[in-house]
Simulated assay, not measured.
Amino acid sequence: MPEDRLNRHTIRSHGAKVARTHMHDWLILLVLAIIDGILNVIEPFHRFVGEGMMTDLRYPLKDNTIPFWAVPIVAILLPIAIILVYYFFRKDVYDFHHAILGLLFSVLITAVITDAIKDGVGRPRPDFFWRCFPDGKGVFDPVTKDVRCTGDKTVIREGHKSFPSGHTSWSFAGLGFLAWYLSGKIKVFDRRGHVAKLCIVFFPLLVAAMIAVSRVDDYWHHWQDVCTGGLIGLAISSFCYLQFFPPPYDKDGWGPHAYFQVLANTSSNNSDNFYAQQTEVQIVSVCIPPHHDGDNVQINRLDSNPTLDGSQIARLH
């Protein structure tokens, strides 16, 4: 498909129409955001944590190297900025709208899945001991040896949300989608062997991986937590990207499905109109019976002017 026709579809000319077409998708995004908000405020499952299990949960309680507020900036705002830059070059509202919609779906679906699993599993974080007993004095049930936490309830509740890592899943969802997006735009699989393109694609994944590493270094997560979070984010981002765009190795991998559908419909309509005009000309031509040489001359004139109406045809007789 020709890329030079992209400038026909801008936000001003087609933005409102595209947004109305996908109004239900935006409503679903709102529902996902509400669900994730609820999952973040409900109490997670408090699984049994015996006195003997505390040996592996005594890591220091540290601050986050990557704070919570920074994750949406890296996973959402940074990809949106790159998508916006591409729009300024191509002026394709279909690419702009579907890329942002796919990105938000990727992150929010990942967030809902991650937080639902967190609440259901209730795995203690590596620093759970100091969350549970900030004074360092452990208190346990005399019979079951289960913990009897004496710390702040909010801190303890957060201590039961180790599996999987939310920082990691969000990062791989947003930056994983960006990696897919970039690979299509720069045609990384064009079979020309430019390995430098792969470095561009891998860079967002490297950033996501370093965020995942920071979660282990800060003792907020076990290594299994970040591995699972990364897989969730990558899987969801792949599904969401392929919902709106062809695979990057496809010949049309640089643009969204919707753009090519619009081109196909436009070409089909133009072909139908051209065929209808040709048929009308042929019908007008054969409806005038030749009687003598003068009529033949008039018929030739009629054939050369296929736009004559019925009254003009009557006068020719």
Rank of each mutant, 00 (worst) to 15 (best):
K187E: 04
I38P: 00
F189E: 03
D218G: 07
V18M: 01
L32D: 03
F89R: 09
T307I: 11
L6A: 06
C199D: 06
F203I: 14
V297D: 10
I211G: 07
Y94R: 02
N40D: 15
H98A: 04
T55P: 00
V71R: 00
G151W: 12
L316T: 00
F128M: 04
C240G: 05
P256N: 11
L39H: 11
P2E: 06
D252I: 12
D252V: 15
I80P: 12
N270H: 10
P164I: 05
R123N: 02
T144K: 08
W170Q: 03
E51R: 07
T55F: 14
P289W: 09
G310F: 11
I288D: 00
A81Q: 01
L6K: 08
A16I: 12
R90M: 05
P256V: 04
R192C: 00
G229P: 13
P72V: 05
P2Q: 13
A276T: 12
V262T: 14
K161P: 00
M54E: 12
S311E: 03
D225I: 08
N269R: 13
H22V: 11
H291E: 10
H221V: 13
V201T: 03
R123T: 03
M54T: 10
R58E: 04
N273H: 14
E3K: 07
V71T: 13
R8D: 06
D127S: 09
N64H: 13
P248K: 01
I117N: 02
G294Q: 08
T65E: 03
P142Y: 06
F203L: 15
A314E: 09
I288C: 07
C287M: 13
I211P: 09
H46D: 02
V147M: 00
T114K: 01
N7P: 09
D295L: 11
R131I: 12
I156K: 01
I82M: 03
S13Q: 08
D92Q: 10
L101H: 02
V281W: 09
I11M: 04
D4C: 06
R131M: 09
L198R: 05
L308T: 08
G229F: 08
W220L: 06
